[in-house]
């Protein structure tokens, strides 16, 4: 092998390594820059409004609807549930720092003792089981209402997921990243195909929303659902749309995906719960 061949192979290896092993910080910069460069008239924080940041007609309708938000009753119920003591007299507040107020922006977080990602909904259920209560079903219902109330106490606080650095954190982050960019289902679509490559374009009558800001406003009250749903419930909808089988709530793959996506939105303000079509 001559010197030129060796040099070319070395260059190729270096370029491959730089693509697959970008640090989470570098990934975040590239991810956020992609959107701010593609939509230079939209501020970073506005991406938390999803499709309503891109489509003025849809935004006008959404703002009119928000004069009387459809989720108000469920949000109040979430607050009541959050403040209702368990049978042992303790409450959700006893399980969380700052009594569970203004903490949404720190979830999901990595639990290094258990070597796993913990989402807010998982933490809510662990709070219940640690206090001898039955866990709630994931994705919708009471758990989404409680999570929505907790999110509402964080309104305006910036998403602040600690940068993955340890081996366990990086493994979870990379798994979530790979899930996001992998094509799946019979229609062979990845999350990125819709929410990065085709963001702002139409899929039938719907404008495809930016992935930047997706996690800021969940749980979301969707008119289609007529109830709150967590981010993982939305993952289910996307999977069904591409004809992939949805995963169980709080499965490792979903938690890792939520971890990756939320880290990509670091610095954006929490603006949930929100309503969507």
């Amino acid at each position: 092998m001559n010197l030129l061949s060796k040099a070319l192979i070395t260059l190729l290896l270096i370029s491959l390594t730089s693509v697959s092993y970008a640090t989470p910080e570098q990934d975040k910069e590239t991810f956020q820059s992609f959107y701010t460069e593609r939509f230079p008239d939209i501020s970073k924080a506005e991406f938390g409004d999803g499709v309503y940041a891109l489509d003025q007609d849809a935004r006008d309708q959404w703002e009119a609807m928000n004069d009387f938000p459809p989720y108000e009753d469920d949000l109040e119920e979430g607050e009541t549930l959050f403040n209702t003591p368990f049978t042992n007299g303790k409450s959700y507040a006893s399980c969380f720092e700052n009594d569970g107020e203004n903490i949404r922006q720190h979830y999901p977080k990595f639990d290094s003792k258990r070597n796993m990602v913990v989402t807010l909904e998982l933490a809510i259920n662990e709070c219940r089981t640690n206090n001898d209560e039955e866990p709630l079903p994931y994705k919708k219902g009471d758990i989404a209402k409680i999570s929505a109330y907790m999110a509402s106490t964080s309104e305006g606080s910036e998403i602040n997921i600690a940068t993955p650095t340890s081996k366990g954190e990086l493994a979870a982050y990379e798994a979530g990243k790979q899930y996001f960019y992998s094509k799946r289902g019979q229609l062979n679509f990845s999350c990125a195909n819709c929410h990065i490559q085709n963001v702002g374009r139409k899929a039938r009558s719907e404008t495809l929303s930016p992935a930047l800001g997706h996690p800021t406003h969940f749980p979301v009250y969707r008119m289609k659902w007529e109830s709150f749903g967590t981010l993982q419930r939305r993952f289910d909808s996307c999977n069904k749309q591409v004809r992939a089988e949805p995963l169980p709530g709080q499965s490792e793959a979903y938690r890792n995906l939520e971890y990756f996506m939320t880290y990509m939105s670091n610095g954006l303000p929490v603006n949930g719960p929100a309503s969507r079509k």
Binding site: Q186, S190, I196
Partner: peptide
């Protein structure tokens, strides 16, 4: 079988979807 081909393909192909 097609889903398994997809799984095998996506072990590396996902990198092509990065922004």
């Amino acid at each position: 079988e097609l889903a398994l081909i997809q799984a095998e393909h996506e072990k590396t192909n996902w990198l092509n979807n990065l922004p």
